[in-house]
Write a protein that binds this DNA or RNA. Structure first.
Length: 376
RNA sequence: GGUGGGGUAGCGAAGUGGCUAAACGCGGUGGACUGUAAAUCCACUCUCUCCGAGUUCGGCAGUUCGAAUCUGUCCCCCACCA
């Protein structure tokens, strides 16, 4: 296996687990949060800043890099690591999510998906083989299988058809990747809110030699209870000796819920996106830095945070930067928000180690003001 | 002093007889954001006892059923000429 997973400890309290994932570009402890860097950049941040935060693995995106600058450019640059100057691990999403999120126009066929370039309207065709070819050019450590991410809600009939196709596509990805000793490949379990379909999908995918397993099709607008329910019955179906990745989840409450059910890896655009929208994630809940109440507040963003931003700047200054639309404001908030989640993950790992997970979960829910249906 | 142009909500700026409490932009205030078409999007932004009502478009006086829009006059600003 290109990707190694070492299980360090299972929680005595719940399904949470502590592990170490090793890729060709390094290893990191899990549960882990992976910042999203779609366009070969974690928006606004440099490699040094990400390293200072302690990020060990980031995401890139097949679809976006395929249409710009083009996988050939990145291949010639020596791969995505060299291209973007990130010597640590990279996971690339397959483009499957863009089929879901991007286009009004798309036609899903057995062979692949026809859809339109969101920048210039060009007709594009993405298939499992094409996605893997691009990801090979990118040279990511972990590639994702090309899947279909069906919307919520979808009918059982549709979901069944979709899941069966996603399984066939996963096998084609595996076939296309045969002999690749440098990159790992994760399969994606779909099935929506239908337990038997999730089970079927997981059982089928488990038969093949994937390096890890993701749970997809969640965080697409379904209620939190459904997400938890799906995780409760899906995660135990996944191999214990491989990493488990919940795609697209990144609010503190949902991360805790998912870790509790045995998930190891997370990614989410939330910290970087809301930073650019002027919001900070703090131990006291979400702060909208545009708000007037921060005008004369000369204390740090988050008194419990030791990030670069909190060590050096005040709320008043950050509010000023955001209101003045100064780039530095968005950068400083991005640094803080990623650090915030990074630190939360460290706390989670400690809590698993010490079997104090529920204590932590309760505290975080209370401190962050997480309530039913409202998570950050 | 003369000639021309102009004074509209916090600012800029449309509107030139009824459909106008008045487009739009900025600013202001709040909200949203989940495998990134997102430094984006949404709402509110004259006053009030806010379903409804009341005062507005430099001031005053008129014309009219009805005026930000027409007339007179006064005040102020800008440009050019003396």
């Amino acid at each position: 296996m290109v990707i190694k997973y070492q299980l360090i400890k299972e929680s005595k309290e719940c399904k949470a687990r502590l592990g170490i994932v090793t890729t060709p570009h390094g290893s990191f402890e899990t549960p882990v949060f992976m910042p999203v860097g779609t366009n070969a950049t974690v928006k606004t941040l440099t490699k040094e800043e990400l390293e200072a935060i302690g990020a060990e693995i980031i995401l890139g995106n097949t679809y976006h890099l395929w249409i710009q600058p083009g996988n050939d450019v990145i291949k010639k640059a020596g791969g995505l690591h060299k291209f973007m100057n990130w010597p640590h691990s990279i996971l690339t999403d397959s483009g499957g999510f863009q089929v879901f999120s991007l286009s009004d126009f798309r036609k899903i066929e057995e062979e692949g998906v026809i859809f339109r370039n969101h920048k210039n309207g060009d007709l594009l065709f993405l298939s499992p083989e094409q996605s893997i070819k691009i990801q090979k050019d990118l040279g990511s450590d972990i590639m994702m299988a090309f899947d279909e991410c069906p919307p919520y809600p979808s009918t059982y009939e549709y979901m069944k058809t979709s899941v069966e196709r996603t399984i066939r596509w996963a096998k084609r990805c595996l076939e296309e990747n045969k002999g690749n000793e440098k990159q790992g490949l994760f399969a994606i379990v779909q099935g929506g809110e239908y337990e038997d379909l999730r089970k079927y999908c997981a059982e089928e995918l488990k038969k093949y030699d994937f390096d890890g397993f993701a749970i997809g099709g969640l965080s697409v607008g379904e209620p939190k209870e459904i997400q938890n329910e799906v995780l409760t019955y899906t995660t135990p179906l996944l191999p214990e000796d491989k990493p488990r990745y919940l795609m697209g989840v990144g609010t503190p409450g949902m991360i805790l819920d998912a870790v509790e059910r045995g998930v190891d890896m997370f990614d989410c655009v939330l910290p970087t996106r809301i930073a650019r929208h002027g919001a900070a994630m703090t131990h006291f809940g979400r702060l909208n830095m545009r708000n007037k109440k921060h005008e004369y507040d000369f204390t740090p963003l988050d008194s419990k945070c030791n990030c670069y931003t909190c060590k050096n700047y005040t709320k008043s200054y950050l509010r000023h930067l955001i209101k003045a639309d100064e780039i530095l404001g968005y950068r400083l908030l991005s640094i803080h928000n990623i650090q915030f989640l990074k630190d939360l993950m460290a706390e989670i790992r400690d809590a698993i180690k010490n079997d104090t997970f529920y204590e932590l979960k309760e505290r975080v829910y209370k401190e962050y003001g997480i309530e039913d249906g409202k998570d950050f």
